[in-house]
Every structure is written in C-alpha cells, then in structure tokens.
Design a protein around this nucleic acid. Sequence first.
DNA 1: TTAAACTTTCAATAAATAGTGAAAGATAAA
DNA 2: TTTATCTTTCACTATTTATTGAAAGTTTAA
Lengths: 166, 166
Amino acid sequence: MKLEEAKEEFIQAWGALGSSWGINRTMSSIHALLMANNEPLSTEDIMAALQISRGNANMNTRALIEWGLVKKHRIAGDRKEFFVAGKDVWEMARQIAKERRKRELNPVIESLENLKDIDENGEEAESFKKRINDLHDFTSEISGLVDKFTRNDRNWFYRSLLKLLG
Amino acid sequence: MKLEEAKEEFIQAWGALGSSWGINRTMSSIHALLMANNEPLSTEDIMAALQISRGNANMNTRALIEWGLVKKHRIAGDRKEFFVAGKDVWEMARQIAKERRKRELNPVIESLENLKDIDENGEEAESFKKRINDLHDFTSEISGLVDKFTRNDRNWFYRSLLKLLG
DNA sequence: TTAAACTTTCAATAAATAGTGAAAGATAAA
DNA sequence: TTTATCTTTCACTATTTATTGAAAGTTTAA
C-alpha cells in the first residue's frame, strides 16, 4: 500500500470512529490528518487536504485545541498559524478521557444527585430511589477512576479500581 | 421532589447522556423510562409516556433488546409484548461495553491492521508506520481489556490491566 | 499609523439523522 | 380457516447538526 493511500484510509477510519463517539466527523478527520503528518499544517493545508471551508477548518482546529489534542505551532518568518497533533497515544487517551468526563459524566452525576431527595415512600418510590442510588454510586466511582487515570496517578488508580471491582 | 417529577427528570438526563454517546435520544429515553418503572411496559405505554409514534417506539425497543439492555416480557392472558430493563447497573455497563467494542473498537482495529503494510521507506513513511503501530497496539490492548470486563473475568482483567499500564 | 495578512464569527444553507403513521406482515384465538 | 390483535416496515416529513463563505475583527510588518 502506498503512503498517501494509507493516510487517506486512516483519515477516513478515524473520522468514522469519532462520529460514533459523538465527535463530529470533520474534527476527527482533522485530528487524523495532523496525526498522519509530522510537519505542522496550516489552515489552508487542512482546507485543501479535506476539501472543507475556512470557517469549518477554523472551528474544528480550535475545538481540537480545546480538547488538548492539537497544539498551535508558529513557524519563524511566517504569519500563519500551523497545527500539530500530540504524538503520544497515551497522552491522547488521557486528554479524551478528561474532556469526556467533564462534559458528560459530571453533568449526569449532578442530575442523579438532585434526584436523590424524593419525599415519597411507597414501594415504587423506594425501588426507584434504589436504582438512582446504584447509578449514582456507579457513575461516581467511574468518574473517580477516570480522574485518576487522567492524572496518571497509577497508585491511586489501582486502589480505586480494586475498591470498585470489590 | 415528587416521584413522577423525578422520573421525568431522570428520563431527560439519561436521554441527554445517550445522545452525547452516539445513541439516539429516544433509545436512551425509553431505557430510562423502563429503568424508572418496575412493572413491564407495553409499546402503547411507552408511546403515551414519551409522546412518540408507534414506529419509533418499536424501532427503539428492538434496538435496546439487541443491545441486551431490555428484555421482552409476556404477561399471561395478554397478547401484547411488554418490556423491562435489566436491574443490575454492572450488568448494564457490561452490555454497553460489549456492544460498543463490537461496533466501534473492532472496526478501527481492523482498519489499522490493513494500514500496517505500507511499502515505502522514507522518513515520513516510517514515522507514519510507527504511529499506526502505536495506535494499533493501544486499541488492541483496550479491546482485550474490555473483553475481559464484559466476560466478568476479574483475574484476567487485572493481569491484562497491569500489563497494559506497565 | 496604515494596510496587508491572517483569523474569527455568524446568518444562511446543506446534509444527516430521527420520527411519523399508514399499510403490510405476523400471530393466535375462535 | 377467518378475523381480530398486535408488530414491523418504509417512504415521507420534521428536526437537528454541520458546513459554507462573506464580512467583521485582529494582528503585525513596514
């Protein structure tokens, strides 16, 4: 297989993975494009490679920077901004986990906390309360675990995991 | 807070969580509705509770059954089908992990395997190969870990995890 | 300063996804 | 069988989400 062909297929596959994870296709395609290229790319490079508009390229590079997956890179003597993807797979996984915890896990935990104070006492209410409690305990433990993972705190990660899995 | 109010908020929150995970809002709302109710509900109950059409209710209950999150339930003397959500949070997590591994992780691993045979040798090609390799190793390890988790095989899960985290 | 080079914003538009409901397909009691 | 009850399908419509591109905003070299 040729390198260029492989790059295209990689961009394709990574884009598809992203969209099944609630990340838009362009964002993960840009990420893949930058991972596939060692040299920093400019907005124009990205526009040309993925055939997308300036606005779209701009929005999604900025989203990638917010997620901590991509960094801006200045090249001496050039006024353009260039972009590079982080190279370490583990670091990438940590950033993604961190961001998703913040955006998705935390809000649901908050919701579940609110739902805890139900002032009814029938059998149905009690069983609902129990389920909410189970879910809350579970999501909180997972959240804690993810937090330790993102901090790369192995010692506490293990302790937390052992506690969680019993 | 009243029980009915809490149920509604729960359905809301769970639906939102689902949609940020690439699961459609209705599917996760139905799941939440069934979790919030101990008694089996019929398609008509679901239609009424969530104000959705028969077709939609049918498609999404079937999706939930495919995911292993909901089971059909027959009530003696009634020809309708009823639905109940599993009650164990861990079991639920395992089913979700299992399904997502199959749908998302496996295809990307396959893709990465295909990309391994690049017959070019420049510096750029080598660095691309390395990244693909790193990603492949990482995703494969994660996949194996998830597999052990879904099989509830704690012993192997720990070994696998320790190996992965070094 | 000023003006060229670049980045960002956002209203309009396009594309993708989800939902509807009526009709066709099953199933099982009579 | 036949028929009433329930389930599934699918072409159409509605809703949501992503993308465009031109205009406004910002930065920096001269």
